[in-house]
Each structure stands twice: as structure tokens, then as C-alpha cells.
Simulated assay, not measured.
Amino acid sequence: MVKEFKYRGLSLEELQGLSLERLFELLPARARRSLTRGITDDKRKLLEDTKLAKAGKHKTTIKTHLRDVIILPYMTGLTISVYSGKEFLPVAIKPDMVGHYLGEFIMTNKRVVHGAPGVGASRSSLYVPLK
């Protein structure tokens, strides 16, 4: 049996039907503070683009540098490309992500993979046969 998504006891359909004030009461304190302090112009443009994409009127993929946007219930089902510092990586927004920041789902650094030491890097590397 598939587990039904609930956020603080409410299903996704109920969350999408809530007013913003009622939704703010359900969010954690940090997200609530961020949203009640106001939305800047660039964040407002991103939220409008997500509404257009949800309605099917936005043709291209949504790309953003804004990693501090809080995921709201109406964004679920969209794919937004978020900048990692080097490239835009797609994030498929799922219901479990409601209340989190977009930047939490994109890593900004990669795991370091070291190569073999060069000749002369250490005393023992002088005896490593060259190919």
C-alpha cells in the first residue's frame, strides 16, 4: 500500500487550498519568518514563473540562482533548475519538500578525487615505474 503524503496532518490538496496566512502557521519558524518579512522582486518573479509553469503557459525550463526560496505546496510537480555555483541542476519538486529551501537539494561542491602522485612528489614516488 502506498503511503499517503501528509504535512502536519493535511494532505497535499488541503495544503494547496489553504490561504497563505493559514499556511504560514504550519511552516517552521525560520520559513515563517522569511516569508512574513516580505518577498523581494526576484523571488516574486520566480513564484510567478512557477504559477505560469503549473498552468502550462511557461514554455522553457525555469532557471534560478535563488537557493533561499521556500518550497510552497503549489510548486509540487514542477522541475526547477537551480544554480550550484557552476551549472544549473534540475530539482524535481515532490510533496515531501514543502517547507524546505531549494538550495537544500543541490550540492555546491563535489567529492574530491585525488590522482596519483607525480614523480618526485615523495621519496617513494621516484621508484614508481612510468608507463
Rank of each mutant, 00 (worst) to 15 (best):
G118C: 00
I62Y: 04
A116V: 11
G38D: 12
T108G: 07
I80A: 01
A55I: 14
K94P: 02
I71G: 06
T79D: 14
P117Y: 10
F24N: 06
M1K: 12
H114N: 10
Y7I: 07
K86A: 14
I93M: 02
S125F: 00
D41V: 02
T50L: 02
K94A: 13
G17T: 00
S125W: 04
S124T: 12
D49S: 04
H100G: 02
I93K: 03
L35D: 02
E104M: 14
S125T: 05
E87F: 08
G118S: 09
L35W: 02
T36F: 11
L10C: 03
H114T: 11
G9I: 08
G56R: 09
H65N: 09
G120Y: 03
K54Y: 10
F88K: 11
L12K: 05
K63R: 15
R8V: 03
S81F: 10
L15I: 11
S11G: 15
T79N: 13
G120V: 10
L26T: 01
D41M: 08
H114E: 08
P129W: 03
M97A: 06
G38C: 12
L12I: 08
P73Q: 08
K94R: 09
L130G: 15
K94Q: 13
K110Q: 06
V82C: 04
P90V: 07
G56L: 11
T61S: 14
L23Q: 02
T60W: 07
R37S: 11
R37M: 10
P95E: 02
S125K: 04
T36N: 06
L27T: 01
S81D: 14
T40G: 14
T50M: 14
T61R: 07
K45D: 14
K45Q: 11
L15F: 06
M97F: 04
E104K: 14
G85W: 03
G103M: 03
G99R: 13
L15A: 04
M107A: 15
K45H: 07
A121N: 10
D49V: 02
D42N: 14
V112W: 13
P95H: 02
K59T: 15
G115S: 14
K51N: 01
L126K: 12
G99I: 07
G118I: 00
R32V: 08
E25D: 13
H58P: 01
D49P: 05
P129E: 01
F24C: 00
K131L: 15
R67I: 00
D42E: 14
R67T: 07
T108F: 04
N109V: 11
K43G: 07
V113D: 10
T36V: 15
K63H: 09
V91E: 07
K131W: 08
R30Y: 15
E14C: 05
T60D: 06
A29Y: 15
D96H: 10
L12E: 01
